[in-house]
Design a protein around this nucleic acid. Structure first.
Ligand SMILES: [Zn+2]
Length: 510
DNA sequence: GTGTTTTGACCGAAA
DNA sequence: ATTTCGGTCAAAACA
């Protein structure tokens, strides 16, 4: 493959700066349901944030001094996953709901987590999103987004051994893999790596696979890492998404770094009637269209009156709509995931994975019709500490601020999507509440704040006009440039990168 | 014949 | 100016 990355795209009309991404999730659930298997997500251990200021990555490492490390305690991720399983109508036999509701969450939320007054983990899990039935899988809360997305993002799959195992030889499990949820085609799968004799990861959770097809284009031994780094590029035409994977000799994935956003749908597992959802998050509106043509949307509105310099409220409503707008994603992001390396037996499948890092946005495609490759970044004079700017969205006016806050919120969602427990384990302050809105409908709210910035996400759930099924995707992350970084107090805050002004200067955005 | 992986070369950025 | 490093290229090998 050659140089399409550098080819100039023809001028395009700017429409939106948001991301459009399709993901097929329902098929996963279908498969899980069909096999009647359980979903197991191993807990993440407590993490401590380390900063590589040069790389602008957040790296965390194991902190053995936490209760999250205790295998015997229920894992929040498991709990959340089980909720998903529950909602998806497949078994999750290991969940002890009574236990969860009574005390286990508190155990999971180990000391580093600061549970604010008013936040009840039980309440959190009792949010409408979790209690909704499978007939109305409307993402009504952040939890909903995060959990469902975790399913997608990390391709959690049933612990059925055949399915849990990588089915190709060599290291090609990284690339060109069908979804583990795809129905097994006996003839096809037989020639693949027969790992059936090996023990699958106990968590039944394949952290190395995802729903895209990748082509390896390089491998390098990087410093300070005993494992080589392998470079992969999405095989989809004109897609610039890449990922880097570090693997032990045994095939245990220790680190995955995603970069870029796929500009296409998830490659469809053939012959499977999966449900695909298209999501668009465009200027206050989240539109969703699933595979069966049912469409829905909800508004993500910023309440300007509450939008002060320190807080904002984003009200989310669900409503029936079909105004999907063609939009191309212009966001390039980097998602770094670091996994623990405790794999004992099964090669190529991560055991007890550990998701660590946050997203770092990096735009290389601007919406001016051309593609741009970032070649440098510089701290501007007079800005001694750019990393600590923009805790509070900087804006020229309330609309700017609203947008910025909205993007912060979306990034928060993304953070949770990557790891629902992340915010907890990294001392992200948040608060959650459950209440009844003016129309008697339950609503779940979550607020998060760091050093200075404070933003409230308040998502009111409205009963959809028509039953909305299979809405499994979150609003897409706004193309904000920044990352979640711990501040001096150890709180995680979104840091909007300096030197990325082009983001804010996108026409039609502010 | 096509698509992918391997692997040393190559390149730009930073030290 | 030179070295180091991370990332990419691309030809050859491979499936
Ligand atoms: Zn792609």
């Amino acid at each position: 493959m050659a140089v399409e990355e550098r080819a100039l795209a023809g001028p395009r009309t700017y429409t939106s700066s948001f991301v459009n991404e399709e993901l097929g999730l329902r098929s996963h659930f279908d498969h899980l349901s069909q096999n009647g298997n359980e979903v197991m997500l191993l807990k993440s251990k407590e993490k401590e944030i380390l900063m590589n200021s040069k790389k602008k990555d957040i790296v965390t490492s194991d902190n053995p001094n936490t209760s999250l490390h205790d295998v015997n305690k229920p894992c929040l991720e498991r709990i959340l996953a089980d909720r998903v399983a529950e909602r998806s109508q497949f078994n999750a036999p290991w969940l002890d709901k009574a236990h969860v509701k009574s005390s286990s969450i508190s155990d999971v939320l180990s000391p580093p987590l600061m549970i604010l007054p008013g936040l009840s983990p039980t309440l959190w899990l009792d949010s409408p999103a979790f209690l909704s039935t499978s007939q109305e899988q409307v993402p009504t809360s952040i939890e909903d987004f995060s959990v469902q997305n975790q399913q997608v993002s990390y391709s959690a799959y049933a612990s059925d051994r055949k399915d849990a195992l990588v089915r190709r030889s060599s290291n090609s499990f990284i690339s060109n893999e069908q979804s583990p949820f795809t129905e097994n085609q006996p003839g096809q799968e037989s020639d693949l790596q027969s790992d059936s004799s090996e023990a699958p990861p106990e968590d039944g959770y394949n952290w190395g696979k995802d729903k895209y097809n990748w082509r390896k284009y390089g491998e390098k031994q990087v410093k300070n890492s005993e494992n080589p780094r392998r470079y992969y590029k999405c095989t989809h035409p004109n897609c610039t998404a890449t990922k880097k994977v570090e693997c032990t000799a045994e095939g245990c994935i220790t680190k995955i770094i995603y970069r870029g956003v796929h500009k296409h749908s998830v490659p469809h597992p053939s012959r499977h009637t999966g449900v695909r959802s298209d999501w668009q998050f465009s200027d206050g509106h989240v539109n969703c269209s699933d595979y069966h043509g049912s469409k829905s949307s909800f508004d993500c509105q910023v309440d300007g009156q509450e939008a002060t310099s320190s807080s904002a409220r984003i009200a989310t409503q669900y409503q029936n709509s079909s105004d999907l707008v063609g939009d191309e994603s212009k966001l390039k992001r980097r998602i770094v995931e670091t996994c623990a390396t405790e794999l004992k037996s099964t090669p190529r499948v991560m055991r007890k994975p550990k998701i660590v890092v946050q997203t770092i946005s990096e735009v290389d495609v601007l919406d001016d019709g051309y593609r741009w490759r970032k070649y440098g970044q510089k701290v501007v004079k007079g800005n001694p500490n750019p990393r600590h700017n923009h805790d509070v969205p900087a804006a020229k006016n309330s609309r700017d601020w609203n947008h910025e806050t909205s993007r912060m919120a979306a990034n928060f969602l993304e953070a949770l999507r990557l790891d629902p427990a992340y915010s907890l384990q990294n001392r992200m302050h948040f608060n959650a509440s459950k209440s009844i809105d003016a129309f008697g409908r339950p609503e779940t709210g979550i607020s998060f704040f760091g050093e200075q910035g404070l933003a409230n996400l308040r998502m009111a759930r409205l009963d959809p006009i028509a039953p909305v099924k299979n809405i499994n995707m979150p609003p897409q992350v706004h193309p904000v440039q920044g990352q979640w970084l711990p501040n001096e107090a150890g709180f995680l805050t979104l840091q909007v990168d300096q030197g990325e002004e082009h983001i804010l200067e996108q026409p039609g955005y502010f």
